[in-house]
Design a protein around this nucleic acid. Structure first.
Lengths: 369, 369
DNA sequence: TTGTAGGCGTTATCAA
DNA sequence: TTGATAACGCCTACAA
């Protein structure tokens, strides 16, 4: 761990000034003889430029941060997987912040931009408070927010459209002849919780189905909670023939409970999840799920940020990613599901940007394919 | 995005020297009046110290990098989830490198340490070449390697023991009365592939079971390949009564094929995976899997690195994480599996360090629980 | 073509 | 207790 050589060391070694060293290293016009001597010295000494010093001078770190609640969440994970290569290709390193869905943490991250340890930030706030808006306005580096943010927040914004998403699912279920379509939501006081609840009512309306309180259960966005909620639902409304779940984990819990209750999926009860995570394809029966385009949102966010880093002064932009329905066995049965193709959704990563990259052979430690 | 204030700005504002500003900001003894003026100016100007300048001076970045093949891989993901909070608690930011399992990339990361953009590195090399060894020896910052590394490599090292892992699985299967235990491996020329192949032979030996070439199939570490391999196996050795799969994805592929072939799991064929990823608990039937302690390995690596950052000169240390068997339905049946507890393995995160942290409510975008 | 010198924002030393 | 000043490693006018 010897102290590394600096341009000073090289200058001495090569018998030139540090300015010449810098010039050579940056490819500025220099006498050939000098170039040779500098390069040789650099080579011999194993010189590597100090990025911190360079950053201080250039005011760029070539680092970008991504802040989300928890990297263990498959939705955020899908985003990271897209964000990382895009940034990397542009020469940026990726820094990860797990905010644990804590508002104070999120605000800290925003204020932390003043430390200038990154050139920009992609963030998914749990919810958007007043504090967020003022912190965003005062941010000392470009920020891209994933998740809806009010007009005039002054930041680039990537959204999805859960309204349409829920609508796709309910239309699908309706088309399959389902009429008693229950809804299992997460907490109503979260942004997505509220949005999805509203979307459910709207979709029912559009289909001319009555809104029945007995068919709605609110729990949390976890598997165990999903199970609990579905048990409650079945007790209360034994005639449900479809479950719209506010995310895939809830849906997995639903599958567990239905299986134990002896209800066949999808014959007796069809189940739809949301987010179209990797888990949907692994579940049995495989899970029909509304894709909210996590990967595409991640990619879009990265691209917006890069663009803004080149071009700091353009107007803030809003990108909306359209939801899709990934049809699988939990609504149409295993046989039909195969006809839809292996996973229903048409290439989540979109536009030739392949989501699941070839990872070579990691031997027992591989991503899903 | 106005240029931020520096200690110079504050000094002018407060009518003191930059030295005084620095002192106050660092809590060094200062006259109270001066403290007040500096703090007020800092407050008014919204001063935030520039971490780049600070790093240049202090020669510490408070950043640590984690380099693995692909963050989408559930095994690495489990590691990141442990590494992140440990580092964060110690005041370090986490930087992510996806090497795509490319040796050249890995070496680049090691050489890149010379840029001093991080204080240390945790890395999982795909395989350990000569190049790795010399790059490790020349590394300009402390490195912790996850995965076996030869004695004398001079770096901290976290390992698992796949030998024992496979042994646990085969003992379990044997105990259930299985005698025709096939093995589905990934490429034999990878480190884990080779290790697991050897472990399988050894475990057979220990059980006095014959090694039967027909019972071994080599493919890749993916679900589709696992499916292919198992089809081949069934064609060739229809009497297999158990499948030892070299990772969970292969095992998932196996479940698909068995289901289609009308073989009941576990009644006709028991299936064991490896790595005990989140997917194992989601699969149906839920998958018995050898846990190689991904989370614990991650945590151990982070702790080793932190220790070394405090104490640069101690001897390199080797930590070995013991494998465990997570028994689930794919070997003992759904009913019995429940008696083992929800997922068989006794708290993978170990030692009170809870792996699956409460993530609050992320509303539709949650990790598995 | 090259070298000297100043500055990026901090910290730390040394006089005053 | 405070201020001037010199680093940290690099880049870049500007002068030679």
């Amino acid at each position: 761990m010897a102290e590394g050589p600096t341009i000073n060391t090289i200058a001495r070694h090569a018998g030139v000034s540090i300015a010449s060293v810098s010039r050579v290293l940056n490819g500025l016009p220099t006498r050939e003889e000098t170039v040779r001597r500098v390069l040789r010295a650099a080579e011999e000494l194993g010189y590597v430029p100090n990025s911190v010093a360079r950053s201080l001078k250039s005011r760029r770190t070539n680092q970008v941060a991504f802040a989300m609640a928890d990297i263990g969440n498959p939705v955020y994970l899908a985003m990271v997987r897209e964000i990382q290569p895009v940034l990397r290709a542009a020469g940026y390193r990726l820094l990860l912040h797990s905010t644990d869905a804590d508002v104070a943490d999120e605000l800290d991250v925003l204020r932390g931009l003043g430390e200038r340890y990154v050139d920009g930030l992609i963030m998914i706030p749990l919810r958007v408070t007043e504090g967020h808006l003022s912190a965003l306005a005062a941010a000392r580096a470009p920020v891209v927010v994933i998740g809806s943010v009010p007009e005039g927040a002054g930041v680039d914004n990537v959204r999805t459209d859960s309204r349409t998403g829920v609508r796709l699912a309910l239309d699908h279920l309706y088309g399959l002849g389902r009429r008693r379509i229950a809804f299992v939501n997460g907490p109503a006081d979260t942004v997505p919780g509220a949005a999805r609840a509203a979307a459910y009512r709207e979709a029912l309306d559009a289909l001319d189905l009555p809104y029945d309180e007995d068919l709605v259960e609110v729990g949390d966005f976890y598997r165990a909670e999903g199970a609990r909620a579905v048990r409650a639902l079945l007790d209360r409304a034994g005639d449900v023939d479809a479950l719209m779940c506010a995310n895939d984990l809830i849906a997995l819990g639903a599958l567990d409970v239905l299986r134990r209750a002896g209800r066949r999926v999808p014959e007796d009860v069809a189940v739809v999840g949301m987010d179209d995570t990797d888990l949907a394809a692994v579940a049995w029966p495989s899970l029909t799920s509304v894709s909210l385009g996590s990967a595409r949102r991640g990619r879009a966010a990265a691209e917006l940020l890069l663009d803004r880093l080149e071009n700091g002064e353009r107007e803030p932009r809003v990108v909306t990613v359209e939801p899709r329905l990934a049809v699988r066995a939990s609504t149409v049965g295993a046989r039909a599901a195969e006809e839809y193709g292996e996973n229903g959704a048409a290439g989540e990563a979109g536009d030739g940007g392949e989501g699941a990259r070839e990872a070579g052979r990691t031997a027992g430690e591989e991503g899903i394919r």
